[in-house]
Amino acid sequence: MRRKSPLERVQLLGRAGIDVVTSLGRSTIFLLAALFGRGTSGKFTQLLIKQLYSVGVMSLAIIVVSGVFIGMVLSLQGFSILAAYGSEQAVGQMIALTLLRELGPVVTALLFAGRAGSALTAEIGNMKSTEQLSSLAMIGVDPLKYIVAPRLWAGFISMPLLAMIFSVVGIWGGSMVAIDWLGVYEGSFWSNMQNSVSFTDDVVNGIIKSIVFAFVVTWIAVFQGYDCEPTSEGISRATTRTVVYASLAVLGLDFILTALMFGDF
């Protein structure tokens, strides 16, 4: 390879910038067309149910199992730290706040990107490479309406539910470890939790977070599938991109949302 002159480097930077902006633009048009475009989609409910099943129900197992373990680990770690200050009763509020504000939405979004997001990308990419999308279009059915829209909505609906289930299961796992194993008094465990957790500030903010994450992760996953190069190599690259982009977007957005919701300014 020949060395590049500074001007060529600037040109490369410019080209990369243009690429980023065009793909942002294309994905936005794609999203708007899929969600709000008019078209024939008579059996939308049926399609949505099918997708809710494959996106939501199929992710339930990994969410529940991870939730229990994360709650239990939080409980163990929190207890050993709090016990040093003689306030092990506060372990309940610590678990609940951590799960509701942060771990519930974030870990669910990351797991969702890995489990459902990659599957969405691969599925749509595969449909594209086997010409099923073109075939739909030629039959006179808009693939944006028939394939993309139900998957987007299924993602938007599923993830907040999954995040709430994650938090509940995590708190349950944490309470089990704290109360039955570490011997924290049950009454103070729950009353401390109830006193410090606010429904509007903590629960609702957590749900808002996971709605935002749901939007971003599903959008990235579905667009990557729809936009991928229709070869097996292209699909595998798109799947990797989905997981990487979605995870980064979730973590970055989490910082911004946390600063807006819980930061003092």
């Binding site: 024939t40 099923q132 073109s134 075939s135 279009a137 039959i139 006179g140």
Partner: peptide
């Protein structure tokens, strides 16, 4: 999309 109802396409892979 209405127009395409009057058209049939047989894709390479069958699709």
């Amino acid at each position: 999309f209405d127009m395409r109802k009057k058209m049939g396409v047989l894709f390479q892979s069958g699709a």
